[in-house]
Amino acid sequence: MARAVSAAEVAPTGYAWQVEARGLRVRAGRTMAVDGLDLRLGRGVHGLLGPNGAGKTTLIRSLATVLRPVSGTLEVLGTPVSGRLDLRGVRRALGYLPQDFGYYKRFTVREFVEYVAWLKEMPKRDVPGAVQRAVERVGLADRADDRLKALSGGMVRRAGIAQAIVNDPEVLLLDEPTAGLDPGQRVRFRELLQELGSDSCVVVSTHLVEDVAAACTDVVLVSGGKLVFQGTPAELAAAGGPDDVGDSPIERGYSALLGGAW
């Protein structure tokens, strides 16, 4: 019998922005790491830049629904995630690579990605194909049946990216994904980012300015838990003058916008 497309597959989205935060405040330990942040993110690759301690990781963790905001509103895919709510629907559409990517050493790449697919409640029949596709996309197909403990740091990072994209997430959160990747892998990773950003909202936290210049459609600059700047990489570059500190236009824009804060 012919297969009909289901209603869910043709349903229009009910939200304007994949991520929308207003007056967001999130605590990390004793400090208010995100303090009154307003942010709207749509499709594309958003590079999250900022000095150490600016609240990048805390922001990503609250977007990943791990941390509960203290106050303010945070909507992911049109669903508020601030209170005690059923988060399952939102979490199914999320992909998350934590900064300290922890994994089970005895698992093979395939087993680990499959485990995450199960945690993300993917339909059983889709899992093997989706796992294979994710592993291929990060270029680990030839090592898919090797144990994670046998892989190099860069390969583990790529396995981490594979688990994040296995469910084709609508919001993909990557915290320092390029740490440990060699230059060649980094170039391939940027290509993958651009591909992913064409139909989902990708948030990449990084401190490598060249990653932003090469792969991001949008730059979000945070400092002291607040939004300092949001715009295209070209706009960030235009913010800097010849007197500002930095080796490239984007670095000069970065230091100009942060003033002495970096």
Binding site: R61, A64, T65, V66, L87, R88, G89, R91, R92, L94, Y96, P98, D100, F101, G102, V116, W118, L119, K120, E121, Q163
Partner: peptide, 9 residues
């Protein structure tokens, strides 16, 4: 950290 961000958690 990964587990607690998934729907199954």
């Amino acid at each position: 950290e990964l587990v607690v961000s998934t729907p199954r958690a």
